[in-house]
Design a protein around this nucleic acid. Structure first.
Lengths: 215, 215
DNA sequence: CGCTTAGTTGACATAGATCAATTAGGGTGG
DNA sequence: CCACCCTAATTGATCTATGTCAACTAAGCG
C-alpha cells in the first residue's frame, strides 16, 4: 500500500536483538492451531504450510510460505492455524511482548509488518481465485504457476519446478481430493503443459499454461 | 496482532483533514479493477462488494464490506478489484499521496491501517474456508452465519437477516452457480435452518446451522 | 531385499453446472 | 389503483466433473 519499505540498520539491529534464530527439520510442527500465540516468525530459508483443521476433520491449507515471509498472526491471542515445515527450515522467532514494546518506541518498524500483512492478503486473494476456479485443471495449472514464481524452487532456464509439498498438501490447498490431484497432473501432461520427471519434479510450460488459464 | 488500537483526537483530526466525505447510491461503481489507485476508502455507512473480473469472463467477489471497513488497496499502483456499492453508501475518501505524507509525520496512524489489513486478512481466510467447503449447503449456511454477524442487517431478537446482496452476488462470492444458490436456500428451508420471508429477508436458526456446519 | 508410505489408476456414484422454462416482485405510466 | 413490463428468483431436466472406495504400482529407507 505504502510502497516499498526497508528498515534502516538501527531498526534491523533492534529487531534482531529481540529475535532468536531457530531451526526446524522437515515435516515438523512449529505451532498448533488454537495454541496461545507467543511468537511471530519470519522464514530465513525453507518452506512452511499453514493449515486449518476443520470441525468435520478435513484439513484446509491456507498458504505455503517461503523465504522472507512472515507468519504467526493471532485471533484473540491464539494461533488461527497450525504451522508445519515442508522441508528443513530456518526461522526468526520474535516474542510478541518484546515486539509490541519495540514498536511503541520505534513505530516505523510497524511498516514492515503492514507490508507483510498486505503481501499475505494478496496471496490469500489469489488463493481464493484458484480455489474457486470451476475446473480443477485450471486450479492445478494456476497453482503450478504460483509455485513457479518461487525462484528457489523453479529453474527459469530448464523450466523445472521442484515441489516442496506432496499431493495431499496440494489437494488440501485447492480443496480437492488427492486422487484428483494425480489424475489432473496426468491431464496436464497429456495436454503437453507439463512433463513429470519425478513425483516432486516437473518441467512446466508457463506460457501455454497461462494461455489455457484465460480460456 | 498488536491488540486494540485507537487514534487519539489529534490523530483523528489529522486524518479527517485529508479525507473527504462522499456519497454513492446503490449499485454504483466506486472504482474499477486495474484503474490507477488514487484513493483509499473507509465505509461510514452502507455496504460494498469487491469483485474481480476473471479473464474467462466469470466474476469473483472477494468480499462484502460494511461500516467501518477499509478498502482500496493497490497492486503496483492499480486497484486489484472493482468496488461497487450494494446499497446507499457514505464513505471517507482519502487520497494516497496525502495519506503517505501524513503517515511519515505521524507513524502511529499506520497502526490503524495495519489493524484493518489484519482484519481483512482474517475475513479472506474465512472466505477460503467457506469457498472450499465440499458441500454447497455448508458454504451457503456458513455464508449466512457470516452475514448474521453484521448487527446492521441482523436482528438478534427476531433472528431476521436482511441480505444487501442478490443471488448472483452470493453465487459469485461462494464460487457456485446462481441457480444453485436458490436451490440450496430451499434445501436449508426444508431442513428448518432458515425461513424465507422475502427474497432478501429470512429468519435464520443460528444454533442449528452451527451444528450442521460441524458435521 | 523386503517393508512402508506416497502416488497412480480404475469403476462407480453423485453433487452441482448448464440450459431452458416459469413465477414472483418492484417500479412505472396510464 | 391497476395493468404492464422488466428484472430477479425459482424450478425442472439433463449432463458431466469430481469425489469416493478400492486396487495396484513406484519409490524411498532400513
Amino acid at each position: 500500500m505504502f510502497g516499498d519499505f526497508r528498515l534502516d540498520e538501527q531498526e534491523r539491529d533492534a529487531l534482531n536483538a529481540i529475535s532468536s534464530k531457530i531451526h526446524k527439520p522437515a515435516k515438523c510442527r512449529i505451532y498448533a492451531q488454537d495454541e496461545p500465540a507467543r511468537y511471530l516468525y519470519i522464514i530465513r530459508s525453507g518452506a512452511v504450510r499453514l493449515e486449518y483443521q476443520r470441525e468435520d476433520g478435513r484439513n484446509q491449507i491456507f498458504a505455503f510460505l517461503w523465504s522472507d515471509n512472515m507468519f504467526g498472526t493471532t485471533e484473540n491471542g491464539l494461533y488461527r492455524a497450525s504451522a508445519v515445515t515442508l522441508i528443513d527450515t530456518y526461522l526468526f522467532q520474535i516474542p510478541y511482548p518484546a515486539l509490541r514494546t519495540l514498536i511503541e518506541s520505534r513505530p516505523r518498524i510497524q511498516a514492515l509488518f503492514l507490508q507483510h500483512a498486505l503481501k499475505y492478503t494478496k496471496a490469500t486473494e489469489r488463493h481464493v481465485l484458484l480455489a474457486t476456479c470451476s475446473l480443477v485443471t485450471k486450479r492445478l495449472a494456476g497453482f503450478l504457476l504460483e509455485c513457479s514464481k518461487q525462484a528457489d524452487f523453479f529453474d527459469r532456464h530448464s523450466h523445472i519446478l521442484t515441489l516442496a509439498m506432496d499431493r495431499k498438501d496440494i489437494a488440501d490447498y485447492l480443496g480437492i481430493a488427492l486422487e484428483t490431484t494425480s489424475r489432473t497432473l496426468k491431464v496436464l501432461e497429456d495436454m503437453d503443459l507439463i512433463k513429470r520427471l519425478s513425483s516432486q519434479r516437473m518441467q512446466i510450460n508457463t506460457e501455454q499454461i497461462q494461455m489455457m488459464m484465460s480460456r
